[in-house]
Structure formats: structure tokens, C-alpha cells
Write a protein that binds this DNA or RNA. Structure first.
Length: 499
RNA sequence: CGGGGCGUAGCGCAGUCUGGCUAGCGCGCAUGCUUUGGGAGCAUGAGGUCCCCAGUUCGAAUCUGGGCGCCCCGACCA
């Protein structure tokens, strides 16, 4: 579990420690631990409507960091943002058979407006392929109009049976990209480009979450897609979380919405479309990947506050001196582009230390009279909770160096954890064993024959599913025997329990 | 949608079995003083439709019936 990764805290009276961590230290209850962090770090609050959530400022700041990171990459790969309406006529929605079947159980439908029954019910979008399809049919005439590379930032609604803050809520925030291409190859290239250059790049480099990249099995494929690609991450309890998906929709939606163009050769042809999305779920991934018994641990690149300065003083005369030192330090940091903040609340320093650790701020600086005398500041890192004095002149350079180190360290710790919880299984008995111990849950790599029946049987018996068929196999062999039926198999699959 | 648990102050809970005075405790909150280098102390104070409706009773947080909501475990999903 993530909590175990943390280095032993230093310079701490043990009984105080015990008192503080009691709520978060219960290793058997990852779910309670998660909810506790969400509440205590003030990321979110419950809504009066079941399954919805209020994203509080600190949580929203994380979402803004996610938006910045993704939006930048989405635009850098040639896409433009637009906005499609929230309501979708039911008839639109019903055009693509597999699509409507896939989403029907979780649709919210508006039947009354302005006190009158609507002639046609409106679906609240659970995703926007249908409405994009409708407009793409209007906007595309010629091969010269292609590709259409659009993205929107929006909220969507899926009536979920079971919800969890950030991970699965009835309404959630996301971006959904929808593109239309001239050829199948173009669409396929787009699908993979998004997966690698937008999603994986952002999640690994900024959220510091190591990923597996691969393709979904048919049963996990998006309703209406030809192929679905995904990035999968391992959470602190060994379960898998899908962190982003990219779909090659083939010509399914082009057929359903009649999106045609006149090609160079004078022929009318159907376009090839893609769609891809990443959601506020990424914040859940961030919490469950890096969090420990003291709360959140945020990667510096996305931390709303990278450095918090806690002033320490006793008498008024000391406060004046300390304030001067803190102000000048803060000014220096801010000018250098560091997201820094000082904490002058009327609380004891100890309270503030714990509070900022709960919120995952990567670095804390402490400045008191003793430090000013020695011309130093105390620097405490959130990732390993190490604490040391550093010379005042070197603060900025030390800080920048340490922020980078923390960013890297969080990624490395998560990667090490995933490696330690990644197993292989040669047959069903071995596979079962890997999912028997809750304390050691993880990913299991094995051969699969490709049969949906084998997949379904495993799911029924072990509650484990194929998270992806990874692009990169960890074995050299090209084939083996299916973990369930024992027949020849050429698909290397990652099985896991999933969120 | 099945199985289990729970609804009492902002949060966490006791009280309910066995009906009875003005419904308590901890945390938090407000004010004041003393404090402040790993969750400070004392004092004073504010804060309640006891989930809702109906019933039983002289009297209901407590008993009965119905309803609603939340959490956990499963099946469905980003």
C-alpha cells in the first residue's frame, strides 16, 4: 500500500505521531483512507444529490493543473477547442446501435421543460459522439475539410450505481476530443498520438504516475468503437485505474450520422472518426498513487502550492523580524516563478506542519529567530519527510533542485511499487493465488487466447478483468498457453481488479 | 439492483434494549488571557425540526408501521 512507501519520519515524538495518524493509518481500509483525505485536504464535499460532488477550491486547483497540462498538449498536437450543447435529442443518440445500448442504462433524460412535457426527450450527454457526428456531417463536404481536430472541455452525466469522489461520480468533468479523418490510417495514427503524446506524456511527466499503455479487450472496448486504447495505472492498494482512453471509431459513427466527403478521386466516402477522453478521475489517481498515512503527496509540477513558508516566533519583537525575513523570501520565490505561500494563521507551528502535509504541499520552509541568526531556513520535504537547514543564499537553487527531485522520486516510488506488485501466472491456479491476498493485490501478466468466454469466466470467479493488452510485453515469447483454457494463446494480457 | 450497517449540534459519537425532569460527550467554532521549533492550556459562550410522516401512551430520541437518505460489500461503468 502507498503508505508503506514513506520513509520513517524523523525527529518526532512517537506518541504525538501516533495520535495524529490514527485516522489515516488504518491500512486495511483503503476506501476509508481515501474518503478521509478527500475530506480533510478539502478537495471535495458531498452534494445533496446522490452521486454528485462539490469540488472545493483546492481540489479544483488540481483540476485546473490537469486542464492546463492536457490542454497545452491537445493544442500542441493541432487540435482546437469548441463547445457542444449539454442536451442531445434521444433520436440522435439512438442512431448507433451499440453506442445506445452501451449507454442506455446510465442515461439521464429530460422529459419536461418549462412545465410542459417535451415532444422529444433530451438525453443529458454521457459523452458527445452523437452530437459531434451530427455536426460533422454538416461541416465535412470535401477531403479538403479533413481532418477535423476538435476537443471540448465539458461536464457529462452518467447515472452510476455506485459512486466515489473523483473516481466515479454521476456528473464529472472531462475533456473529450472528437476527430474526423480521410483514411483509416490517419484515424489510427490520431488515436495513438493522443494516447502517447497527450495522455501518457502528461500523466507520467506531470502527475508522476507510471503507466501501462495498451489496447482494451473487446469486452472493455468503448461502445461503438473499432478499437479502444488506454493508459492504466496501479493505485496504492494494487487495484488498476483507467486514466485515459482513446478510441478508433472506424466508420461506425460516420455511417450512423452519414458523415461523407467527396474525395480527390471524385468518390463519395465516409470519414473515419476518433474520440478520446480524460476526466477529473485523474485527481483520484493522483491521490491514490502518491498519498500516504499523512495525507496527500503532490508532484511539484501540479501542486497548487509548491512551497509553504511557516513562520515561527514567540514575542512580538521576534514576529517583526521573522515577518521581514519571510516577506523577502516569499518575494524572491514568487519572482522566480515558484508557487509559494506563507502561513500566518493563529495556529501553532505543529498544527500548520500537519495541515500542509495533509494537503500534500511538496516543500515546507520554516523560519524562526534561530534560523535568522544562523542565516538559514529549515526545509522539509513532503515526499520523504526529511528535514534540514539550508543556507539562506542557496534557498532558491536548493528549492528548484529539490522540487525536481521530489517530482522524480514520486514517480520512482510509484514505479517501484508497481513492479513489486506485478506478477505472472502460467495457469488459472496461479492466477487465482495472485488475487487471493488482499494485501498483495496487483497486476498479473499472462497469456490469453482471446476468447471472451475465458475472460468472462475469470471475471466471474476472481473479479479480475483484463485491463489491457500492453504494447510492450515483458516476455520475449510470441505465444504461450491461455491462462484459463490452456489452448494456444498469443495475447499477453494484464489482469487486475479495477476501479 | 441484491446483502449488511447507520441516521441525535459543523464533524465523530453516547443515550434507544428496559419510554420519564432542562438530551449529553469529544473535536471544531466565538471571545479573552497565557501560549507558539511536530496537531497548546485555562476560562466563558454560541450552536439541536434527536431523518420524515403517522400511530401507541399522561408522556416518545427511545415502542409500532410506513417512507426517505447515507455508508460498506457484490453485479454495471471514465
Amino acid at each position: 500500500m502507498a503508505k508503506k512507501q514513506t520513509a520513517q519520519p524523523q525527529n518526532l515524538p512517537s506518541e504525538d505521531e501516533a495520535k495524529f495518524v490514527e485516522d489515516l493509518a488504518d491500512k486495511d481500509d483503503f476506501s476509508a483512507w481515501y474518503h478521509d483525505i478527500v475530506r480533510k485536504a478539502e478537495l471535495a464535499d458531498d452534494s445533496p444529490v446522490r452521486g454528485c460532488m462539490v469540488i472545493r477550491p483546492y481540489g479544483y486547483a488540481l483540476w485546473e493543473a490537469v486542464q492546463r497540462g492536457l490542454d497545452m498538449r491537445i493544442k500542441a498536437t493541432g487540435h482546437e477547442n469548441l463547445y457542444m450543447p449539454l442536451f442531445i435529442p434521444m433520436s440522435f443518440f439512438e442512431r448507433e446501435a451499440e453506442h445506445v445500448e452501451g449507454f442506455a442504462p446510465e442515461l439521464a433524460v429530460v422529459t419536461v421543460g418549462g412545465n410542459e412535457k417535451l415532444t422529444e426527450p433530451l438525453a443529458v450527454r454521457p459523452t458527445s459522439e452523437a452530437i459531434f457526428g451530427h455536426f460533422y456531417a454538416k461541416w465535412v463536404q470535401s477531403y479538403r475539410d479533413l481532418p477535423l481536430l476538435y476537443n471540448q472541455w465539458a461536464n457529462v452525466v452518467r447515472w452510476e450505481k455506485r459512486t466515489r469522489p473523483f473516481l466515479r461520480t454521476s456528473e464529472f468533468l472531462w475533456q473529450e476530443g472528437h476527430t474526423a479523418h480521410r483514411t483509416e490510417e490517419d484515424a489510427e495514427q490520431e488515436t495513438l498520438k493522443i494516447l502517447h503524446e497527450v495522455y501518457a506524456d502528461f500523466v507520467e511527466k506531470e502527475l508522476a504516475i507510471p503507466l501501462l499503455r495498451g489496447q482494451k479487450s473487446d469486452s472493455e472496448r468503448f461502445a461503438g468503437a473499432l478499437r479502444t486504447y488506454c493508459i492504466e495505472a496501479m493505485m496504492g492498494d494494487g487495484k488498476a485505474l483507467q486514466a485515459g482512453t482513446s478510441h478508433n471509431l472506424g466508420q461506425n459513427f460516420a455511417k450512423a450520422f452519414n458523415i461523407q466527403f467527396l474525395d480527390e478521386d471524385g468518390q463519395r466516402k465516409l470519414v473515419w472518426t476518433t474520440s478520446w477522453g480524460a476526466s477529473s478521475r485523474l485527481i483520484g489517481a493522483l491521490i491514490m498513487t502518491h498519498g500516504d498515512q499523512y495525507g496527500l503527496r503532490l508532484p511539484p509540477k501540479v501542486a497548487p502550492i509548491q512551497v509553504v513558508v511557516v513562520p515561527i516566533w514567540r514575542k512580538e519583537a521576534e514576529r517583526v523580524i521573522v515577518q521581514e525575513a519571510v516577506d523577502s523570501l516569499l518575494q524572491e520565490l514568487t519572482a522566480a516563478g515558484v508557487r509559494a505561500k506563507s502561513d500566518w494563521r493563529e495556529q501553532t507551528p505543529g498544527y500548520k506542519f500537519n495541515d500542509w502535509e495533509m494537503r500534500g504541499v511538496p516543500i515546507r520552509l520554516e523560519i524562526g529567530p534561530k534560523d535568522i541568526e544562523k542565516n538559514q531556513v529549515i526545509m522539509a520535504r513532503r515526499d520523504n519527510r526529511a528535514k534540514a537547514g539550508i543556507a539562506r543564499e542557496t534557498v532558491l537553487s536548493e528549492l528548484n533542485r529539490t522540487l525536481e527531485e521530489i517530482q522524480q522520486n514520486l514517480f520512482n516510488q510509484a514505479l517501484d511499487f508497481r513492479k513489486s506488485r506485478t506478477y505472472q501466472a502460467a495457469n488459472f491456479t496461479e492466477l487465482s493465488e495472485k488475487f487471493a491476498d488482499r494485501e498483495k493485490l496487483g497486476f498479473v501478466e499472462t497469456w490469453w487466447c482471446g476468447s471472451a468466454d475465458c475472460e468472462a469466466e475469470i471475471k466471474a470467479k476472481l473479479q479480475a478483468t483484463i485491463r489491457c493488452l500492453p504494447f510492450e510485453k515483458s516476455v520475449k515469447a510470441k505465444s504461450g498457453t491461455c491462462v484459463y483454457c490452456g489452448k494456444p494463446a498469443d495475447k499477453w494480457a494484464i489482469f487486475a481488479k479495477a476501479y
